[in-house]
Amino acid sequence: MSSAWHIVDVVAVQEETATARTIGLRFPLPVRSLPGQHLDLRLTAPDGYQAVRSYSVASASPPDTLEITVEELPDGEVSPYLVRKLAVGDQLEVRGPVGGWFVWRPEDASPVQLIAGGSGVVPLMAMVRAHDQARHPAPFRLLYSVRDPESVYYRQELESLAGSSSGLAVDYVYTRRAPAGRPVGRLDARILASSVFGPEADPAVFICGATGFVETVSGWLVDSGYPPERIKTERYGGMGGTG
């Protein structure tokens, strides 16, 4: 059974924001991942205590390296270690990539609506990147709820993709502080309706973030007539708000 676990090398760490970090993991063998999949990480303390947590794959650098982005939860058991202490050269135990449901498949030609709360942008970014790399014709739209401008992950890449002909549009909702001239406030049903593909476009919808965020947003969409079977969700845990 333990064959499911690989030992991977930490080959890169990069500050993504003041509280989040992108970590490159090199696998012992070539590794393939589908956009939206996640890894399970297992940490073992010197006295044998173990903790397992899941992290979405943010991007792949073929043939053998995957990146994850971890947000530090101040009272968390695992994330502060990953964001503050883990260093290049360390090793980790990893299971996956796993998951076949919360996955964007290029065979699907429908428009894609992505909705992220905070660190929930990570697997959606994997979809955005796959869409761009494939020069896929389906229109993509990302609605990204964050605290403030400094908390945006992958900011430059998102800006340049949204400004290009890649077919990606990005809308931000700033919950605590916004750039000059932009409104501040939590996502609500009205803002949601005005920033996503309408139900008549029959988009494939992917929502990811804290459990409370996903719960609320998916409820609004179903109430507005999006068929539940077109909505796929990834709850990260936690009843925290909309980013």
């Binding site: 333990s2 676990w5 030992i7 073992t44 303390a45 058991e77 270690y81 202490k85 883990l86 135990e93």
Partner: peptide, 9 residues
Amino acid sequence: GIISSGFQG
């Protein structure tokens, strides 16, 4: 497997 010396839980 791998021990993470800085990890306490």
